[in-house]
Computed example of a mutant assay.
Amino acid sequence: MSSLLLIEQALNGLQFGVMLFLIAAGLTLIFGVMGLINLAHGSLYMVGAFAAAGVSALTGSFLLALVASLAAAAMAGVVIEMTVIRRLYDRDHLDQVLATFALILIFSEGTRYLFGSFPLFLDKPEWLSGTVTLPLGIEYSLYRLTLIGVGLALAAGLFWMIARTRVGIRIRAGENDREMIGALGVNISRLYTLVFALGAALAGFAGALVGAIQSVQIGMGEPVLILAFVVIVIGGIGSIKGAFIGAILVGLTDTLGRFLLPQLFALFMNPSEATSVGSSLASMSIYLLMAGVLLFRPKGLFGEA
């Protein structure tokens, strides 16, 4: 096994992890502040990817496509928060699950109506194509390396906003005692809309960034949503730090598992069987990780009661 190839796969896992964080951070913010289970969060990821692909096809500009993904996902978030989600805050979680599941179907069929059923492709810009030489002579994709840098920069900015700004103070206060901050004059409805739009924008931006690696298609948000839920359960519901650590753990576990397990089983069985068994176990690895964390930390790594 080549150590350089192992490092390359670890970088792929880090890239996957920081993209998961952008999705999971919005999801954990929404649940932490509003107490809302939002199954439609993956659809906002899909909205951002389709908006970016559509604008890129019209203008040829990747940067405009990224701006479009942020704007489209945020606007979609504001619309559904004001028209649907706002009616669910005082309802039980079953009502929230049913309503947001209905939103998944609406977004899927609406996207199919606007863009058709065939996948779209978002081309990487020329200035982010090719590879870059890292220490130890590792040749790595410039675009994936950029995704890591952008994801880490956004994570740092989100941590700073939550910890240092007035909006962040209100968000943290809303997690602990929403009635009290309402009594102090904070507009709760406006705060909820802002948090929902922020979470939606992060998800849509992640969809646009990943859309240049894989095809943009209907239903692309649901598998990512499942992983995002795994991330916030591992990290602790409502914890941004937990979402970041959980996302990195999930990204590395999934990517390295798919790389290492087939090679491990190849020592005991023929290559085709080893690939099949190893890939199956790799798909289970993140759920085994979640089970292991919950066994010792039922509230997650950084969760509170």
Rank of each mutant, 00 (worst) to 15 (best):
E81R: 01
L209F: 08
M19L: 15
L295C: 06
A10F: 04
I234G: 03
I286G: 03
N270I: 13
L128N: 10
L66V: 06
N12D: 14
Q15A: 15
I30R: 06
G149H: 12
I240T: 13
M284N: 13
E304H: 15
L295V: 03
R178E: 12
Q217G: 09
G182Y: 07
G300H: 07
S272T: 14
Q96A: 03
G207Q: 03
L114C: 10
Y192A: 13
V84W: 01
F268V: 15
A76V: 02
G149R: 04
L128D: 11
T59S: 11
V18D: 09
M1N: 14
S69G: 14
I226K: 09
A99D: 04
E175P: 05
L249Y: 08
I138Q: 10
A200L: 01
A51I: 03
L145F: 14
I169T: 15
L142N: 12
S285M: 13
L14H: 12
L227G: 13
P298W: 06
L98F: 05
S239I: 02
A57F: 12
A53H: 00
P262V: 08
G174Q: 07
L103Q: 08
R172C: 04
L29R: 00
I218H: 00
F244Q: 08
K241T: 13
D177V: 11
S189C: 05
D254H: 15
P125R: 07
E109G: 09
Q214C: 07
V79M: 11
I138A: 11
T193V: 14
F101E: 12
E179V: 09
S69M: 07
I188H: 00
S141H: 05
I240R: 04
L58F: 12
S215T: 14
V250W: 10
R91C: 08
V33N: 06
G149N: 11
L256C: 12
G185M: 03
P298D: 08
T253W: 06
L264D: 09
